[in-house]
Design a protein around this nucleic acid. Structure first.
Length: 597
RNA sequence: GUCCCCGUAGCGCAAUGGAUAGCGCGUUGGCCUCCGAAGCCAAAGGUUACAGGUUCGACUCCUGUCGGGGACGCCA
């Protein structure tokens, strides 16, 4: 179903072009800013009148005389300096509602031009536990994927995990020493067996200790360096086994967290740094052959136009260090080339924090210089603000003391559990546990989604888990109340499904019914808006407004105390609201909506 | 020094160039013999940091200033 806004924009723009004779003059139809201005407003008249040097109100009258909208709207009204206010007819609204009612897809319009969109998000570091700093990329990226898919795009998820680099030489060597010492043997089979007992928490500890040894112990450092070489050449199977074990162990840590958060990333979406390790040389060579990369202070650099450093000199994008090693810039270029040439991406979305903005700007510039990306592909860096502590300072990354994601989620669930216990002590234990998980994790995700992603994010349990206002529990509560009505209906011998499927036409009379209906028919539009800008908070705003409209309806319009067509219409509104909330929360945000809470 | 983000009610935050800038918390006052009060209704609270500019119209776009954060040659 095409969004009403789009239909109006199209039709009015056509008429506007005809009446004005102006080639490029959009109608600019928007949601009305105030209910008293109707449902939609046309803002383009003033601009057109300006170009024609005519009085906007008079021009609006001319336009209105030519408009044919009576199948959608009541007679248009001209207001203010030259706005045209549009009000949907009850018939149109009722029909639109019936169409959505019959549509399993809730009226979400699939795109006419599906794209292949690569979304790069989450990217945890191997051998480290996920901490709060990973949360935003992971959940924002996931929502973007889900929204784009719901609109019919082909989304390719890429989890660019940090599974490669010199620190793995260190880690492998340390792990080797540790297991060799534990087994009192350097026999590969024995070491491999000892590895079974190594867990992510140990690995993290190992990392600290390995780093210390690397700083202090000459012999260790050279052994670690040898491991790096072996990783690259693959000549020592034991080194690769140790490395693989580290990655596997890490995966065992983060996949359950994805599962708890309802993140759609799968193991097969992993395309980490190691995947590109053997492609880095050719990236550098290609850029050198094209005379784009040049030697500078011993390093290989690209100097894209328009970037300068503190001294005003050209800013290098370093792709190979003076010691011959490659950097993350090189890996990102290799990934970019792979995504464009092998995955055939039309659009690539990188979901990382805003501090990397310059890096991505330069990356995009270099990819364009190299001729990999042209105007037909869209490269986007979807940024988000920094995770801050309540003291307003960023979380530390390399040391301990950061909040582990797993622990955060546990606490969120526990806090939600306390509320459930207080509100609904009579529920069975199993239900309480389900609800606590849905509410606790939902609250954490939702509080992030509902913020403008550009803002810095102050981490606070109390704020994340507050359950008033624009929060996940508000939507979950609205949903649970609808489900409760449905259960009550069965107790009163009302067959909800039969009644719903027998409805051929509905009439809406109460203002709260009409308002709710108007929200319901805007769902697809709201997803589009959120997806274009990659802004989940647009979607949460919509869901919050929808739930608000439902709560007012719920207060004003009893369902089961009525009967006949009025009850049927209200049941339909309830059912559609429930389906929309469930779809938005569960399908697009990955937040569970329990039947009871 | 250059560049990026932020600055909106006491606090936390919204607002696709449109009309009288919204919501939550907090404060004050209403609403459960009525489908779930994790709810609804109402009141109070604003020079959208500041100064210019573009525009018929600016929280939104442009320039500058101030304040906060961040990035800027071999980390990721």
């Amino acid at each position: 179903m095409k969004p009403v806004l789009e239909i109006l924009e199209q039709r009015i723009s056509d008429t506007l072009a005809k009446v004005s004779g102006l080639p490029n003059c959009p109608a600019v139809v928007r949601m009305a800013t105030d209910p008293k201005f109707g449902d939609y407003q046309v803002n383009g008249v003033m601009a057109a009148a300006k170009q024609l040097k005519t009085n906007p109100r008079q021009f609006a009258e001319k336009l209105v005389a030519e408009l044919k909208l009576d199948d959608i709207c009541q007679a248009p009204e001209i207001a203010g300096p030259g706005f045209i206010n549009l009000r949907l007819t009850p018939e149109f609204l009722a029909n639109a509602l019936m169409n959505i009612h019959r549509d399993a897809n809730l009226g979400i319009e699939k795109t006419q031009a599906p794209q292949t969109v690569v979304v790069d998000y989450s990217g945890p570091n191997i051998a480290k536990q996920m901490h709060v700093g990973h949360l935003r990329s992971t959940i924002i990226g996931d929502c973007i994927c889900r929204m784009l898919e719901s609109l019919g795009h082909n989304v390719i998820r890429q989890n660019h995990i940090g599974d490669w680099g010199t620190q793995f030489g260190m880690l492998v060597q340390y792990l080797y020493q540790k297991t060799a010492a534990a087994t009192n043997s350097s026999d590969p089979a024995a070491i491999e067996k000892a590895l079974q007992n190594i867990h992510i928490a140990d690995l993290e500890d190992f990392y600290q200790q390995a780093k210390k040894l690397d700083d202090e112990d000459e012999a260790f450092r050279s052994a670690a360096r040898q491991r790096v070489v072996e990783l690259h050449t693959g000549q020592n199977p034991l080194t690769l086994t140790l490395w693989r074990q580290i990655v596997n162990e890490s995966r065992k840590h983060y996949l359950p967290i994805y599962q708890a958060l309802h993140i759609t990333l799968k193991a097969e979406d992993e395309r980490g740094e190691s995947f590109y390790a053997d492609k880095l040389e050719s990236v550098v060579k290609q850029l050198q052959d094209g005379s784009m990369a040049v030697e500078s202070d011993g390093a290989v650099c690209v100097f894209p136009e328009g970037f300068t450093n503190k001294e005003g000199a050209p800013l290098p994008f370093i792709i190979q260090k003076s010691d011959g090693a490659f950097l993350y810039a090189t890996t990102d270029l290799a990934a970019m080339r792979f995504r464009l040439k092998d995955l055939h991406a039309n659009r690539i979305i990188y979901v990382t924090d805003a501090r990397q903005a310059l890096h991505f700007k330069m990356l995009f510039a270099v990819a364009t210089m190299a001729g990999w990306a042209d105007d037909s592909v869209k490269l986007e860096h979807v940024t988000f603000g920094t995770m801050l502590g309540t003291d307003g300072k960023p979380f530390k990354t390399r040391t301990g003391g950061t909040v582990k994601l797993a622990e955060l989620l546990d606490e969120a669930i526990q806090r939600a559990r306390d509320v459930v216990e207080q509100k609904n002590p009579e529920l069975p234990e199993e239900k309480k546990a389900q609800i606590a998980a849905a509410v606790g994790i939902g609250a954490v995700k939702y509080s992030d989604y509902s913020n403008n992603r550009d803002s810095d994010y102050i981490f606070s349990f109390d704020k994340m888990l507050a359950m008033d206002g624009n929060t996940a529990p508000y939507m979950q509560y609205a949903y649970a109340r609808i489900k409760s009505i449905e259960r009550k209906a069965e107790g009163k011998d009302v067959n909800v499904q039969a009644e719903l499927s027998s409805i051929a036409q509905i009439a809406l009379t109460d203002p709260a019914e009409i308002d709710l209906a108007k929200h319901l028919i805007r769902y697809g539009q709201s997803i589009q808006n959120a997806a274009i800008e990659c802004r989940p908070n647009y979607l949460t705003n919509y869901l919050y407004e929808l739930s608000g409209a439902f709560s007012r309806f719920y207060n004003a319009c009893p369902v089961l105390q009525t009967e006949g067509p009025i009850r049927a219409a209200r049941l339909l509104l309830c059912d559609l609201t429930a389906r929309t909330i469930r779809h938005g929360m569960s399908q697009l945000l990955g937040i569970d909506v329990p039947e009871q809470m």
